[in-house]
Each structure stands twice: as C-alpha cells, then as structure tokens.
C-alpha cells in the first residue's frame, strides 16, 4: 500500500515540476496582458471624456482593485490552494488594517471638518 503510494508520488513528481515551470511563464504572460489592459483602461477613462464624469471615480477604483487582484494572483502567486492558506489569512488581516486606517481617517477627518467653526469665527471667539 505505502509502497504503491511512494512509487506513485515518484512518478508524479517530475511531471508536476515541469508543469510548474510552464504554468508560471504562462501566468506571468497572462498577468502582464491583463495588467496592461487594465492600466490602459484606467488611463483612457481618465484622459478622455468618454466616461460619464460622476462615475469616473468608481470606475477607477474598480479598475485599480481588479489590477491589484491580477498582480496578487499572477505575479505574487496568491492562490486558494491549501499551501497558501496562511498567506491568504495574513493578506486578509492586512486588507482589514489598511481599510481601518484609510476609511477611519477619512470619516474622522470629515466629521471634524463638519463640526469645526469656520476659521474667522474661531479667531473672533479667541479675542
């Protein structure tokens, strides 16, 4: 039983090695192609006036997030395989912290801004 497994794993090992090599070149090529498309799309949307102006910010955000996803999957090789479970967990925590810092700062500063007196009135009160 175990002998059969060992021989099977020995038989599988070399083919898997070569597969890895081929798919990684493919993955870099696919990643490059998608990244170029997404970069061109965001610059095109920003530089021309084909996109409805109020929707431009949302489109740019979607394109940027998509490109970050492409880079993570095809360049940094983050995948859903069990081998990269720890990587995914750390990444999820990183995204959580980044979201807290960025959106937390924006909300707090906007709130402070709304509640602050205009500067001339503030000067008046301090006299």
């Amino acid at each position: 039983m175990s002998e059969g497994e060992v021989s099977a794993s020995l038989k599988d090992a070399p083919t898997e090695e070569t597969d890895e090599g081929v798919t990684s070149l493919q993955s870099y090529l696919i990643g490059l192609g998608l990244a170029i498309l997404l970069t061109l799309a965001s610059f095109g949307a920003a530089l021309t006036h084909v996109v409805w102006a109020p929707g431009l910010a949302v489109l740019l955000a979607v394109l940027a997030i998509a490109q970050m996803g492409v880079h993570l999957v095809f360049f940094l090789h983050v995948s859903s395989s069990p081998g990269s479970a720890n990587t995914i967990l750390a990444l999820a925590f990183g995204i959580f912290v980044v979201g807290l810092v960025v959106f937390g700062s924006l909300i707090i500063m906007a709130n402070l801004n709304d509640n602050m007196l205009p500067m001339d009135q503030l000067m008046q009160m301090q006299r």
Partner: peptide
C-alpha cells in the same frame, strides 16, 4: 516579492494621486 509589492503600491499611487485629479 518585494518588487511585485512595490508595483502593487504604485497602482494605488497612480489611481488615487494622479488619475484622481481628473475625478
């Protein structure tokens, strides 16, 4: 890994800083 991560950060920079001025 370091080099790819820098490219990842640059996506944020060019979208938010440079293209963001057009929105």
């Amino acid at each position: 890994l370091f080099w790819h991560a820098l490219d990842l950060v640059w996506i944020g920079v060019f979208t938010i800083v440079y293209l963001g001025v057009r929105t």
